[in-house]
């Protein structure tokens, strides 16, 4: 069995690659946006995986824990904090893109990326 962390890294790489290929080859604009969200999700997964610790505990210091035991077993909190911010930013970018696509659809009556060609 592959370790969880390694498997997650591979998944992240696969997501990024699928996203790049999708942005390049898929014609439909909304599908392009989905491909872009694949890229950012891949990167987010990569960040989360960095903080993973096999057999680790949640990084919340509860009463009664010895501080050295906590320091040895808690997973690394920084990547999780970063991922939250990154997800929020990604969501807002996607929202702006989708809003523009709606307007372009009303103007051109098409979701094909050919409208971005001229």
């Amino acid at each position: 069995m592959i370790p969880v962390q390694l498997a997650s890294f591979f998944t992240a790489a696969a997501l990024i690659l699928i996203g790049i290929i999708g942005v390049f080859f898929i014609d439909n604009l909304i599908k392009k946006v989905i491909a872009l969200s694949f890229i950012s999700d891949g990167v987010n997964l990569f960040l989360v995986t960095l903080g993973y610790k096999p057999g680790g505990i949640v990084y919340i210091y509860m009463p009664g824990m010895s501080s050295s035991w906590f320091a040895q077993n808690a997973s690394y909190p920084l990547p999780f904090a970063l991922v939250l911010t990154s997800i929020v930013i990604g969501a807002s970018t996607l929202a702006v893109m989708l809003a523009i696509i709606i307007i372009l659809y009303h103007r051109h009556g098409s979701l094909s990326s050919k409208i971005l060609e001229d």
Binding site: L36, S40, G42, V43, L50, M97
Partner: peptide
Amino acid sequence: SYKMALRYLFLGGVAAPMLLLGVALLLG
């Protein structure tokens, strides 16, 4: 202008996560 903004955001959707990936590698 709408098309140009969408192109800019699309290219940003490829480039900015790569910057984040670089940050993540440094963090790791």
